[in-house]
Design a protein around this nucleic acid. Structure first.
Lengths: 111, 111
DNA sequence: CGGTATCCGGTAAGATACTG
DNA sequence: CAGTATCTTACCGGATACCG
């Protein structure tokens, strides 16, 4: 398995995590998948009006490639897809939850 | 107080957190400041060989502007500065710790 | 509906030089 | 030592069009 990030003399595990969840919308996608369990593409779009369709697709592809989420495609017309967390993706729940908690606290202060 | 991110119809607190800690090196900087309490500029540089001096300065400035870290400048020659977490910055410890834990777990798997 | 392909402009970030 | 200033480039990401 190839290391994605540079091996520095004292690299910290935080960098591995960043490698997976950095990217403007990934954490928000994960938050939604945690909250709703299963989401369709258009559903995610509605939750993230600031994220273009193209960007959403890119981020979803990357998360899928990293085995964080999985995609189920229904062979119907019009097309229907459903995204959900993989087993590995579910291990991120405490982290995303912590991010959400901190954001809530921060929003309380900055009001 | 101005909202930095777009107000979307159902924005999640995760986005507020991202607003503060996103940026390639911020989490690594925070990890170091958690671990070592106080760091000089050159010390941080040594811990992050992949981060240029310019980038390090930019990220530190942003974290300082957001009141996450504070800088102490000693008026000596040659100059000496020390960075450390603010009180607000310390509230990020659980989050960064969780990021580190997940990274450790992930590294175990991908070996 | 759920994407991909192509084009293109703005900005993030490296390289280098300079400073107190 | 601890930065800032300037220049230049790469690429991120938006807009648009197209497709099964």
């Amino acid at each position: 398995m190839e290391r994605k990030i540079h091996d520095c003399m004292d690299g910290c595990p935080v960098e591995s995590t960043l490698q997976i969840i950095s990217g403007k919308w990934k954490c928000v996608i994960l938050y939604r998948l945690i909250k709703h369990k299963v989401c369709r593409f258009s559903e995610l779009q509605r939750y993230m009006p600031g994220c273009s369709r193209r960007m959403l697709a890119l981020q979803l592809n990357e998360l899928e490639a990293d085995n964080i989420i999985s995609k189920k495609v229904y062979p119907v017309i019009p097309p229907k897809t459903e995204y959900s967390l993989t087993e590995l993706g579910e291990t991120l729940i405490p982290l995303i939850t912590e991010m959400n908690k901190w954001g809530e606290m921060y929003n309380q202060i900055h009001r």
